[in-house]
Design a protein around this nucleic acid. Sequence first.
DNA 1: GCCACCATGTAACTGGTTACATGATTCG
DNA 2: CGAATCATGTAACCAGTTACATGGTGGC
Lengths: 182, 182
Amino acid sequence: MWSIPKVAEASDTPNATAATLLGFLQHSNASGYELAARIEHSVGNFWSVTRSQIYRELRWLEDAGYVEVAGTGSRRRRDYRLTERGRAAFEAWLAEGPPPELIRDSLLLFVFFADSASPEARLRVVREAQAKHTARLAAYRALLPEVEPLAPTPALTLHFGIMYEELVLRWLDNLPWSRSPL
Amino acid sequence: MWSIPKVAEASDTPNATAATLLGFLQHSNASGYELAARIEHSVGNFWSVTRSQIYRELRWLEDAGYVEVAGTGSRRRRDYRLTERGRAAFEAWLAEGPPPELIRDSLLLFVFFADSASPEARLRVVREAQAKHTARLAAYRALLPEVEPLAPTPALTLHFGIMYEELVLRWLDNLPWSRSPL
DNA sequence: GCCACCATGTAACTGGTTACATGATTCG
DNA sequence: CGAATCATGTAACCAGTTACATGGTGGC
């Protein structure tokens, strides 16, 4: 028995982060920096992407022929344009659909182990989480009337964000040690 | 101006995954394999940890003096015991509290871009997500009566899971294309 | 006694984050 | 004009996932 020789076939399907870039390049050309800025305030709320990643993926996308340099600016700025193949790759990514996701939240980890934590720590953690999530909820609510008329489909994710923050706050409120003053 | 010489000070605070191992070792000694099994069905629902990681962190924890080999079994099995310093490190981790987490969910990414997807893809994605989350919800509900009496604090995370799955299902149900038969 | 499966672990890769570098621009 | 800040990007590190390896065990 011989092992099947492994053809080093570079995968040609973009990962979710690369696909995000393709998605944003549909509308207009942009540099990595611009993409970062646009992403941060929209998708960034539920799909964090850092600039480092963006540049890496842009290089990869260029190698794959999914984007091309549309122009170059001062300092080392390069603007990218979506190619036809890139558009197709984006549509293929959409057609495939997202893999099932799991929650991954260290606040839950803390609560899981909360019996081992001091009452002070428990209370402080809950208070901090409440502050954080209250702020996010307010930010999402403020955003909604701006976003919804212009972009109803993306706004569906904002609705999710709002429902989620409300849920977390309800849950925090009902933690047994969240009311007792130590 | 000289740059400050960087002392290669290996950080001594465990990351959340390592802390999880310490948390589980509080009750009883265990091998990496056992830890993996215990974690998978409890914390694993909201803090996924693979065996590879576990072994890496165990080596690190041993180097740091937070766990020690308590015995060795067949094949290369090694059972670990929490040390006093390890217990202290776990408590320190708890006292510090979790960093604020962000949602990261590619289903939301899909919905964000859903205007570019085909109606078939939209419908299929929603249906698959509904199936997945319905199954999880059922599993959590089935687990609750077992877990809650024995471990009420950990069960709080199960409550969260249930509320979360219900929320996702509600949201999916209300997506504009989720009802229309294409 | 061998085959299938379970227990146990390592290695390699991918993706995400943090830290750093450096060229323009604005403003007091 | 010099300092602060913004725009742009690279490099190094860390954590998570996938794929592989190998030693025991229990049933036929």
